[in-house]
Nucleic acid binder design. Structure first.
Length: 809
DNA sequence: AGGTGCTGCTTACCT
DNA sequence: ACAGGTAAGCAGCACCTG
């Protein structure tokens, strides 16, 4: 029989002495299908003398009574050279690692006797190996040929697969999406689940175990045990393909698992009818539900989206506020406790709980296309993709390419290697000190994808570095002793080149489609995936934990980058243009000719520069602005880099680096600085700005400013006990700890400065423990409002005394 | 005891 | 568990002054 299905999930199991790959999928009609494939895990061995090594390995495994299937000899590319490898086929899932450990004894470099040099690819998990070798992407359609099979798995039918291939198909099958969320109540340090909500298309439910006159979507059960049982029942009945949570990996599922084990409830949520498991990852474990895709949106938002978000906090409330324009129902923890303990307003609590699931569902609806597209681009399962960082996405993309091109994948560095790598640093981008003060008519030019373009243009790749062609016949890296081959294309560089080309094609196709059409949207998510991967590769070169680590490559990218931005500045000045500022790949120019039009001068300059630039390097116009301000440094003489504000012809502000965009400044000071910038940049209304500051101070002194606008956010970047210096956020966190609250590494401390005795730190209090009455207005005037305002106003010669109206004149 | 000025720890930003 | 370049606040300390 032959079946076509959309791949959802895959894993590997041991059945007797066999290794089986399980593919879980969905047919176009919506049937659940499982395909099982026999699989032989394998890894590669590089040896001085492959024939001799083969014998030695066989003898060694014989004496250690380790079973393998066979050893083949095979040619593979290692760092640009074709070499002969031994391909060792194993029997069971973990055998590649185990057998590799045995063979390690034959490595000469470890003092062994044999001719083995190194082993490769022994850590790639079997299901990933299978997908890589069969050229199957993370979320794509496959066609499987095989025999029908009886299984105990939760599927409409199963198939013992013989053949598999990926098929190109645009449409998705009917996928069922379900989101969930829990509310907990802490008692003697133990979390109890008091409520659980679920949200799907035409489905909403809240489970709880206290009675009231509830909405019809609330189901009252007897107790927590029954709540958990009901949860399992609903999952199996509704049978979602994608289960979505917000923080499910680190909160909901750990709590659910803990309570389920306490109450002896079996958490059989998976389609393999086994209990839910956590798979270990770097920082936190992930809750894996076999056969379904558990997407924890927090991971994706935190790893991929957060740099592009405005919000200070990555809470469900803040993120959905920004992305959906919808917020949680307002209810603080105290209210929640009271609702539960005193049965007060329990209805509101059910609505609150349900709303969380609704928001999670809607966020999933918005973000899932990007996750699935990314999964297709990178070629890993959506479960894995949704939890990856930029570096990991780049690495798995390269891994897939390497397998395609029969190249050996470099080994993950050992811990000592990582430590050693971290000791090397190199020079990065060039930053020009800005011309001080206000400027009119600024054009911002920047290099399109500077580092990816450099990698592609100059063939920057680990194997092309300092090639045998010699310096003179190659691309020489300015200001360094490195060069890159002009003859043979490198692996990483050609991959980046392909990414850029594919993206350009997609952008062309996008131009031919309607802006609001589905096709346009699909093309857009696809080009964004390619952009993310391409941009991550430079960082990956310099990342000590990366398989394709190459410090010289990263260093060369930066060196070329510095060369071209400096050249651009020089050329601009030669053409009589004023360069106000430059940072890494951008250049701010001002038109010094009052009689000439800026846009024409810019066009002329861009044409001039682009005709000289090599390869695919291109300088483009990012935008024009009618006015901009650059601010003096606080701590040293001169003008500050990376801190400025621009205003365009529609009076839109672009603010970078200033207090306005920093979360460790209170909202009041940030909003005030934005207002001052608007007054100044729009029409230089200095007096109005001063008046505004004075009014704000007055409001503050009258306690008319809410506490939330005085809150400062700062992250604990390490364990609380390891701080050498107790700053305000650390002091506030210490107080939280003493008051019995949970304090953890990575958490965002929300605090405000109160009046009283001692240093600022001593007066920093967690906001949850204080009211507006406790606030030290003087601190907020002197350390927040005045500095934020003066930063801008000092450019217009406003002094502190003038600002506060304390001057006698 | 209280002020002053420097250094280093720390965070968050820019590209 | 992504890089280097940069600004800036506050603690902590040495030192000075009276």
């Amino acid at each position: 029989m032959k079946v076509e299905f959309f791949l959802l999930d895959a894993d590997c199991i041991k059945e007797g002495e066999r290794t089986l790959i399980r593919l879980f999928g969905k047919t176009y009609e919506g049937s659940n299908v499982v395909a099982l494939f026999e699989h032989e895990p394998y890894f590669y061995v590089l040896a001085e003398n492959p024939q001799q090594a083969k014998g030695e390995i066989e003898d060694l495994l014989e004496t250690e009574k380790v079973k393998i299937k066979r050893i083949d000899k095979i040619k593979r590319d290692l760092k640009g050279e074709k070499r002969e490898f031994l391909k060792v086929f194993c029997q069971l899932p973990q055998d590649t690692q185990k057998i590799r450990d045995s063979i390690k004894k034959l490595e000469k470099k470890r003092g062994g006797s044999g001719s083995v040099i190194e082993e490769y690819e022994y850590t790639i998990s079997p299901y990933r190996r299978f997908l890589l070798d069969e050229k199957i992407d993370g979320s794509c359609w496959v066609e499987v040929e095989g025999e029908p099979l009886q299984t105990r798995l939760k599927a409409d039918f199963a198939i013992a697969g013989k053949k598999i291939k990926a098929v190109e198909k645009l449409k998705l099958p009917p996928l069922k999406l379900l989101s969930f969320d829990i509310e907990t109540y802490e008692q003697q340090g133990r979390k109890n689940i008091i409520m659980l909500s679920l949200w799907g298309k035409d489905f909403k439910k809240v489970l709880t175990y206290q009675k009231e006159d509830f909405q019809p979507w609330v189901e009252v059960v007897n107790d927590e045990k029954q709540l958990l049982e009901k949860f399992v029942e609903i999952i199996n009945q509704y049978d979602p393909d994608i289960l979505v949570s917000f923080n499910g990996d680190s909160f909901d599922f750990p709590v659910i698992q803990e309570r389920a084990s306490q109450k002896k409830v079996k958490l059989t949520l998976s389609r393999d009818r086994e209990e839910m498991k956590f798979t270990r990852r770097a920082r936190i474990s992930s809750a894996r539900i076999k056969g379904r895709i558990h997407i924890d949106l927090f991971n994706f938002i935190n790893n991929i989206l957060s740099p592009n978000l405005q919000t200070e906090v990555l809470s469900l409330d803040a993120v959905s506020g920004e992305l959906l324009g919808d917020k949680k129902i307002e209810m603080d923890y105290q209210e929640l406790l009271e609702a539960w303990q005193k049965k007060k307003d329990l209805c509101k609590l059910t609505e609150y709980c349900l709303k969380d699931s609704e928001l999670t569902f809607k966020l999933a609806h918005l973000l899932l296309p990007q996750i699935l597209e990314m999964s297709k681009t990178v070629g890993q399962l959506p479960f894995d993709i949704s939890r990856m960082t930029y570096g990991q996405l780049a690495e798995w993309y390269l891994t897939r390419k390497a397998v395609e091109m029969q190249k050996i994948i470099p080994n993950q560095p050992k811990w000592e290697d990582i430590k050693k790598r971290k000791t090397f640093t190199y020079a990065g981008g060039f930053v020009k000190e800005p011309l001080a003060g206000l400027h009119e008519n600024i054009a911002v030019l920047d290099f399109r994808s500077l580092y990816p373009s450099i990698i592609a243009t100059f063939n920057i790749s680990p194997e092309t570095l300092n090639c045998s062609c010699g310096r003179e016949n190659s691309y020489q890296v300015p200001g360094t002793d490195y060069w890159f081959c002009k003859k043979e294309k490198g692996f990483v560089s050609s991959t980046v080149e392909e990414l850029i080309q594919k993206r350009a094609e997609l952008k062309q196709r996008m131009k031919k489609t309607e802006k609001d059409s589905l096709e346009h949207k699909i093309l857009d998510t696809r080009q964004l995936s390619l952009k993310i991967v391409a941009n991550a590769i430079y960082g990956m070169f310099a990342f000590a934990g990366a398989k394709w680590y190459c410090r010289e490559c990263a260093e060369s990218c930066a060196a070329f980058g510095r060369f071209f931005i400096k050249q651009t500045i020089q050329e601009a000045e030669k053409e009589g243009l004023t360069v106000v500022y430059a940072d890494t790949d951008s250049c701010f120019i001002k038109n010094p000719f009052p009689d000439k039009e800026l846009s024409k001068e810019v066009d002329k300059f861009l044409n001039h520069i682009n005709s000289k630039l090599p390869g695919i390097l291109e300088l483009e116009l990012q935008g024009t602005y009618k006015r901009g301000i650059f601010i003096p440094r606080e701590t040293a003489p001169g003008t500050a880099k990376k801190r400025y504000a621009l205003i365009d012809k529609n009076d839109n502000l672009l603010i970078r680096g200033l207090e306005t965009v920093r979360r460790d400044w209170c909202n009041l000071a940030k909003q005030l600085q934005r207002k001052v910038l608007t007054y100044i940049l729009k029409d230089k209304k200095v007096d109005e700005a001063i008046q505004y500051v004075r009014n704000t101070i007055e409001k503050l002194r009258k306690k008319e400013i809410p506490l939330k606008d005085l809150t400062i956010y700062e992250q604990l970047t390490k364990p609380l006990s390891t701080y050498k210096q107790i700053g305000p956020h650390v002091a506030a966190a210490q107080k939280m700890l003493r008051r019995g609250k949970k304090v953890s590494e990575g958490m965002l401390v929300m605090f405000a400065i109160t009046s009283g005795k001692g240093s600022i730190s001593e007066r920093a209090e967690p906001v949850e423990d204080i009211t507006i009455q406790d606030i030290d207005e003087n601190y907020y005037v002197e350390n927040q409002i005045v500095p934020a305002a003066l930063r801008v106003l000092q450019v217009l010669k406003v002094t502190r005394d003038k600002l506060l109206g304390e001057s006698l004149f």
